[in-house]
Computed example of a mutant assay.
Amino acid sequence: MLAAWVLVVLSGVFTGLLTARTVERGLAVERAQWRSVAAQVTEDAVGSAATESASGLVWAKVRWTAPDGSAHTGQARVYAGTEAGTPVTVWTDRQGRLVTKPATASQAQTRSAMVGVLVGVSAAAVPFVGGRLVRGRLERHRMDQWDQEWARIGPRWGRTTS
């Protein structure tokens, strides 16, 4: 049981820390490689109660020029009522494709910590459940041995020796 608990702690901590570090590193790469680009809305952004989010944003077609000079179009979230020709900021990757705004350093730390905890707990669950199964099997084996011993000794329990 001690070995199971050691595995639970070690697997949870190491897996969680490794995952958190990997997530944070990935988000740092996004921050370094993704760039904000000025784009223009190409059609009026009309929103309805069905298409509008709680923040008042709707999807609209936008056009932008990538760092290599190529023209691109895509869909971006803008405020309902934004007119065609209005400049907006979009985020692109190295190939000029639209991406979400990268996480700030503090958001990245929070995300990586949450993912690390979730993965660490999940990783620790494996040896924990395994230990519980082994413990249950050992307990059943011990109880079977006790029953066998009681079956052998029990009938002689009330006898007195003469």
Rank of each mutant, 00 (worst) to 15 (best):
M1S: 13
L2V: 14
A3P: 00
A3G: 13
A4L: 00
W5I: 10
W5G: 08
L7R: 06
L7Y: 06
L10V: 15
S11T: 12
G12E: 06
G12V: 05
F14S: 11
T15K: 02
T15M: 08
T15D: 03
T15W: 02
G16R: 12
G16M: 08
L18R: 01
L18Q: 06
L18W: 04
L18Y: 01
V23D: 00
E24V: 07
E24D: 14
G26W: 06
L27C: 07
L27H: 13
A28R: 15
E30S: 10
E30F: 10
R31D: 05
A32S: 11
Q33V: 09
R35A: 12
R35K: 15
A39H: 11
Q40T: 07
Q40P: 07
V41C: 09
D44A: 13
V46W: 00
G47W: 09
S48V: 00
A49P: 01
A49V: 06
E52Q: 12
A54P: 00
S55I: 05
S55A: 09
L57I: 08
L57G: 01
K61E: 15
K61D: 15
V62M: 09
R63E: 15
W64N: 10
W64T: 14
W64S: 13
A66L: 03
P67R: 10
P67G: 12
P67F: 07
S70M: 06
A71G: 11
A71K: 13
T73D: 03
G74D: 14
Q75W: 13
Q75S: 06
R77L: 14
R77E: 14
V78T: 13
V78E: 06
Y79P: 00
Y79D: 05
Y79L: 05
T82V: 15
T89E: 15
V90K: 01
T92K: 04
Q95A: 12
G96W: 06
R97N: 11
T100N: 13
T100D: 15
K101R: 15
K101I: 10
T104F: 08
T104M: 11
A105Y: 05
Q107G: 11
Q107T: 09
T110Y: 05
R111I: 01
R111S: 08
S112Q: 08
A113C: 01
V115E: 03
V115F: 08
V115R: 01
V117T: 07
L118E: 09
V119C: 11
V119E: 07
G120P: 04
S122N: 03
A123I: 03
A123L: 01
A123S: 03
V126Y: 07
V126P: 07
F128N: 07
V129Y: 13
V129G: 09
G130Y: 11
G130C: 00
L133Q: 06
G136C: 06
G136D: 10
R137Y: 14
R137K: 08
E139L: 14
R142F: 14
M143W: 01
M143P: 03
Q148N: 03
R152G: 04
I153C: 04
G154S: 03
P155K: 13
P155Y: 14
R156A: 06
R156M: 08
R156I: 02
T160A: 09
T160S: 11
T161V: 08
S162D: 02
